[in-house]
Design a protein around this nucleic acid. Structure first.
Lengths: 125, 125
DNA sequence: GCTTGTACGTTCTATTTCCGAACGGAGAAT
DNA sequence: ATTCTCCGTTCGGAAATAGAACGTACAAGC
């Protein structure tokens, strides 16, 4: 009956982090910006947004998750956190060069969405 | 003290589904292929894979999630489920035209990953 | 025949993540 | 002094995911 084969696990590393070391560049890219919200945050940056509240209102994502994603994006060098006000001390999240280089990928997504995902009405009440 | 403002919710529609009706084509695209694994499945399709076991081995994703994603991709018209064997009755998941049209976006991601996410070793034991 | 192997899922439970809302702090405005 | 804006953090419940086993259907080997 021993159909079981536990397999020799080694570094559990959350499956998602493992992508960062994948042989495929697409997978490695996704390990950074492949999250549900992350790519939309980057999009918003391209649209000129840069502040916590702006992202939050635009996306409707929970503040907790937003905080998390921004932190990651900064760590990964996609965004830079710059002080835009010292008095209350506020930061602006802005695209780094790495982030700006993401434009072509975003355009590819935009074109595909435009062609294959026509606008639908949000479920008429 | 009434700082609370419950807000008038209407259609809970899981936040992620709401993206399908977003004004932005990028968001609408992501509502379909924006999931962690979904884009990698599509990538695998471009690499010639088409069967359940192939995806499962390639990605290491759980069978449950894979089953789910494939179902969605077929529903959304990105993949087609074609019979490749009637005797044991087996299906092959293959790119539709809509799916093949995703190539440019994937290339964009690939280029970005290649440039900005150099290969790292998987955490030397 | 009976067991083993392959291909495709489905089902189960424990863990992780996410959502929704409230809380907190620091200054600005009224 | 109270309210408002901005930027997060914290909390409890809901949902998704991971990991492994199970089920089915057929084919092949003994």
């Amino acid at each position: 009956m021993e159909r079981i084969k536990p397999s020799e696990a080694s570094t559990p590393a959350s499956k998602w982090d493992q992508l960062a070391t994948d042989w495929c560049p697409v997978a490695r890219a996704l390990s950074v910006i492949g999250d549900r919200w992350t790519m939309l945050i980057v999009r918003d940056c391209f649209l000129g947004k840069s502040r916590f509240e702006e992202f939050q209102k635009s996306l409707g994502v929970t503040r907790h998750v937003l905080s998390n994603r921004l932190k990651r994006l900064v760590e990964d060098g996609v965004l830079e956190r710059n002080v835009y006000s010292t008095r209350p001390l506020r930061y602006a999240y802005q695209l780094s060069e790495k982030g700006r280089d993401f434009a072509p990928a975003l355009v590819g997504l935009k074109d595909w969405g435009k062609k294959h995902m026509p606008i639908r009405k949000p479920a008429a009440a």
